[in-house]
Simulated scan of single mutants.
Amino acid sequence: MGIIVSILVLSFLIFFHELGHFLAARIFGVKVLAFSIGFGKQRLWKKTIGDTEYSIRPIFLGGFVELKGQKDFDPKNRDYSPDSLYGISHIKRIIILAAGSLFNLLLAFLLFLCVAFIGHNDLAPVVGNVDKDKIAYKAGIIDNDEIIEVNGKKIKTWWQLSKIVEDSNGENLEIVFLRDNKEYVVNIMPQIGDSKNIFGEDIKRALIGISAKGEIRTISYNFLESIEYAYFKTIQSSKLIVQGIERLIIGVLPTSEIGGIVSIVTITKQASESGIVMLLAFAAMLSVNLGILNLLPIPALDGGHIVFTTYEMIVRKPASVNAIYYLTICGWVILLSLMILGMYNDITKLLNGSLVF
């Protein structure tokens, strides 16, 4: 059952991505020739409505929207009719190309919104340990104190507290905490100290000298708080993916961290078995991943086509046929290499038992 859910989740994320391209093309008057979920010549289901053939194909590793003029790589043979991809302005073409990724980010926001409404398990802002050499201890905070407000902002999770302290830039924080059901107020000036980021790198950041107790609670939000939570999680997830790609390129993260389709299906399966909230949260992360990766400036991806279109807009002429052809081949080589590496890592993890399918 978990594997079926995984396939459905992946298919839905791909559908939403392609829906972005589809709707943007329709808005700007570009004819959509095909809308498919999955790849392959065989069609499990198809229906033609107007000029568009809608279909489901057997290889559920992607999908596509085919627009009029989209396959015309040779600038001399392009279709510049008003309902073609190349018959509209460069800005409109870029919007169509970026719309799939933007829809994935929108979907992630909506999924995180659902998570906030339903309620999710998170680390409570309860102090587990206080460093006696840091400012929090001197201000009187002790173990088991619960931080409930900072500078007038209600605190529900440890990560909210951590971010406020990190973003304080050493400015004074008015902290309200609970002890034995009584509220206390202290003023603390965070100090810059040594820490580590999520990638294990040594960094300098604002600290007050406390660590979490590790208490997990179910956290829920009202409407406005849910919007703020969904926005923050979408932005945070996007930044983490960009930072992760950057650190893979410079070698901070090992290539063994790259996962393939088996990893995605396995984690989605585990998330679905952990409940609807976990599944929604992971689907949101996966949607952000799909959106950001498609914007990478690799010729075979939407980001690569955006680069070509931007170049054409700046120099007032399209790139040469040879440049487009060879750069696209290089893009596919990069993508296929990453897919093979992901599959290799998946197989390695399956064999050593660290990935259970």
Rank of each mutant, 00 (worst) to 15 (best):
N104D: 02
F109N: 09
E53F: 13
K71H: 11
F64S: 08
D51L: 09
S55R: 10
F112H: 13
D51E: 13
S84F: 03
N121A: 11
G63T: 12
K153T: 14
I142S: 15
L67Y: 03
W45C: 05
K134G: 05
L110K: 05
V130C: 02
R93M: 01
K41F: 09
K76G: 02
L111A: 13
L105H: 03
I91G: 11
F112P: 14
D131H: 02
K138H: 09
S89M: 08
L106Q: 02
G152L: 05
N144A: 06
I135H: 13
P125T: 04
K68L: 10
I56R: 13
A124W: 00
S84V: 04
K76L: 09
I135T: 14
R43M: 06
I142M: 15
L67A: 03
Q70S: 00
K154Q: 15
D74Q: 07
L102Y: 00
D143W: 10
R78G: 07
D122A: 06
S84C: 03
K71V: 11
Y86G: 00
F103A: 08
L102H: 00
F117A: 13
I95W: 03
N104F: 03
K153Y: 13
E146I: 04
G152H: 09
N121V: 12
K134V: 05
D74S: 05
C114S: 10
G119Q: 05
Y54E: 13
I135A: 14
I94M: 05
K76R: 11
I155K: 04
K153A: 13
D122Y: 07
N144S: 10
K153P: 14
K68A: 08
K92W: 02
L110G: 03
I118T: 11
Y80E: 07
L67D: 01
F112S: 12
I88V: 08
F117M: 14
L97N: 01
I95M: 04
I155G: 04
F117I: 15
D74V: 01
S101E: 08
I96R: 10
L67F: 05
R43T: 06
I91T: 13
D143Q: 13
K138G: 07
D145K: 01
G69T: 01
K156Q: 11
G69K: 01
F39R: 09
